[in-house]
Nucleic acid binder design. Sequence first.
RNA 1: GCGAAGGUGGCGGAAUAGGCAGACGCGCUGGACUUAGGAUCCAGUGCCGCAAGGCGUGCGGGUUCGAGUCCCGCCCUUCGCACCA
Length: 851
Amino acid sequence: MRGEPYDPKAIEERWRHYWRERGYFRVDTARPRNKFYYLNMFPYPSGYLHVGHGRNYIIGDAIVRFLKMRGYNVLNPMGWDAFGLPAENAAIERGIHPRQWTLDNIAYAKDQFRAWGIEYDWEREITTCLPDYYRWTQWLFLKLHGSGLAYKKRAMVNYCPGCRTVLANEQVVGGECERCGTTPEPRELDQWFFRITAYADRLLSDLADLDWPEHVKKMQENWIGRSEGAMIAFPTGVGSPIEVFTTRPDTLWGATLLVLAPEHPLVDKLTAPERRGEVERYRKEAIRATEVERTSTERPKTGLFLGSYATNPATGEPIPIWIADYVMPTYGTGAVMAVPAHDARDLQFARAYGLPVRVVIAAPDGSIPDPGEMSEALVEPGTMVGSGPLTGTPGEEAIARTVAYLEGKGIGRRTVAYRLRDWLISRQRYWGAPIPIVYCDRCGVVPVPEEELPVLLPDVPFIGKMGLADIPGFAETTCPWCGGEARRDTDTMDTFVDSSWYFLRFVSPHEEKAPFVTEDVNRWLPVDLYVGGVEHAILHLLYSRFITKALYDLGYVGFREPFQRLFTQGMVCHAAYRCPEHGWLYPKEVDSLRCAKCGQEVATSYFAMSKSKKNVVEPAEIIARYGADTERLYTLFMGPPDRDIEWSEDGIRGAWRFLNRFWNLVVGQLPRLAGVEGEPERLDPAGRRLWRKLHATVKKVTEEFAGELGLNTAIAAIMELVNELGAYVDGGGADPHLVRRVVRDLILLLSPFTPFLSEELWHRLGEKQSVLETPWPDYDPGAVVGEEVEIPVQINGKVRARVCVPVPVASDPHALQEAALAAGEVQARLHGKEVVRVIAVPGKLVSIVVR
RNA sequence: GCGAAGGUGGCGGAAUAGGCAGACGCGCUGGACUUAGGAUCCAGUGCCGCAAGGCGUGCGGGUUCGAGUCCCGCCCUUCGCACCA
């Protein structure tokens, strides 16, 4: 039976029209009943999207289609994280304005979504680089400023010469600029910061209630880096004491020197006159060193004695004060009490300079090592020794009792320190939201009044290598307070500010009086399911949480967390070729693993798709050849959504073949199914098997969508059902009611994955509504069980036979055991053996032990 | 160094309240239809063995009637953090 062949090109366009025209993906946010806020991380519009980007949105579209069929009112908006450096780089390279470049890319990407069969409520589209959005990003800045959460300070910052701007701490990854890979250099600049550290404890503790992958929570936990300890003051001869943070106050009696960061503010005062020159030199050297150099682990420790002393407040003894670049100015107080006997770094330092080592904690076995012999610091807690009044305190009480002692004496107190630093948001660029601040000689730092927002980006014809500061006329303004001459802040905000609140704007994207409507966001948020890449595990997600909490404290939102459930999808990898001479090559520049230009052998490796490695696959090619459904199906089938996967040309053909098989099967059956109505009755054994499989499949697919999102196994289950339906039909299975029911449910089950093909076959089946308006199929848990089960029988741990028994027998241990022992095959095996023990596991197996 | 995830056929991957290892797909082999096949369909496919059978989830031990799954000790890979006091 040959029908019309599957031709995606002939059917897909029609359904793109149909879905958009009928507005199936629009949502009325005024009706939050049965609401579900599904959100994909919005893309940065940098040219076209490749099949790796596609994975993120295809997962989302499949989930959203499922949810709609389950009757949810789904908010599934999309927008563009449209400010940022690549637009400026493109402007420089091609002489095109960043706005033009960005908007062109957006238009192209929108077509790509449409080609994939992904339809959004485009009336809610957000573009962060347009004034009606960044106006509210500026509003957000003013609110944070008004509540003391945005402040300006002069600080050592990471300046990226490649991007010609400063970077937030989080944007320096492995000592390199997250964007361009250049090693940032330290610079001292006046910059704006958001006080995210004020929320460190809440950002940490509220993680507990989030339905997020554990490893993402862990990453945030590590990034925040909470440690409990004590602040201890060491008196000095220059008036101000040196405050030190330590997690081991119980080792105070062993502190034989103080080590300050070279940048520590008291260094000048504490330097003996005769050592000044040397100290200056060391300091300059240390400050100039990049963070990578300074923090490289295996580097020998260096330092310098300042020539002055502090007093150990516990022993009363004078101890020397040193500076060393292993002490970070930004953590704790930028000064540490060095306890060589009980800290690995301090011991290394002490050994390098011949400094005294004093043991004040006994080893776990109770012994007290000889300080002169120690080659490794004794870092485990233990009984305190040689510690004055606290000598003999056991390890488990040591810290608490020491802190109590110090507090009693007024020389120390319990404290918590965080690794997290404040968020540096100033960027010396053009393509970002201008910071709405004015500097007036008379009034000082003046926020731009809300009603004067937005502070528009100057509309200059071409942007070369310049920031706002380089654009004539931008800075000149008048002071909003006194009307006098004033200058605007010429920095723009980090683009992570734009994306740290966009999920709020989607609920009421056209509101003109406010960034969002409190009442509405309170009904729709938190986001029920947020899906995106792990690469945002720290930056974007931490910032968004912080901003949400700040808005909560200010009374603008009634929830403390933006994203209740998070799912991180894996990246799509593909072979990348690198020629020793010509660098990364496109596959077409490689001929039998040799460079087409020079003939040298190329190195093949697998990386996440990226334009720079020339290993991307363009959806347009795939869609032209196989159609969008094939790309969608393969993308979701090739592996678990949360794991990285490797794109394979062979694999996609498997998906294509499957869809052809299914299409041919259904089209071939259509003539028999016309006009057939009603449920199947009185099934034969083959029919009952198919019926059972149908219900098991619906159950499996439903559970994956509603639960762990193992969409690859859901698709595998659907393939099994298609295979069984094919076998049933080929085997002469003739019940048209059953075939129709299975075909119908299969089309619906497949529709989140292959919406075009499903919609087409659905209508050919005679249905009038869209699959999207049709309820998701139900299953009968009773039907899943079937009537008989095959039970394996093990003899001495090996499967030697299988028995088919009715379900009631299989679920009764005694009956099951009887049935297994009675089976002929089992009897033959047991002949001449003594049965020692029989274990019958209902519904599972029978295990017989013989001698 | 610390933390997390992972290691299963030729390949992508299934299966964990301990219970038939390898679902589903790719590839491969054989066959059918073909002028042809990088199309389609049918059959086979963990490894060794003619077979009976044996061996198999990174390595070595252990618990159990039974271990990919649990316990102890290692090895390797990936990711995150890393002189954080």
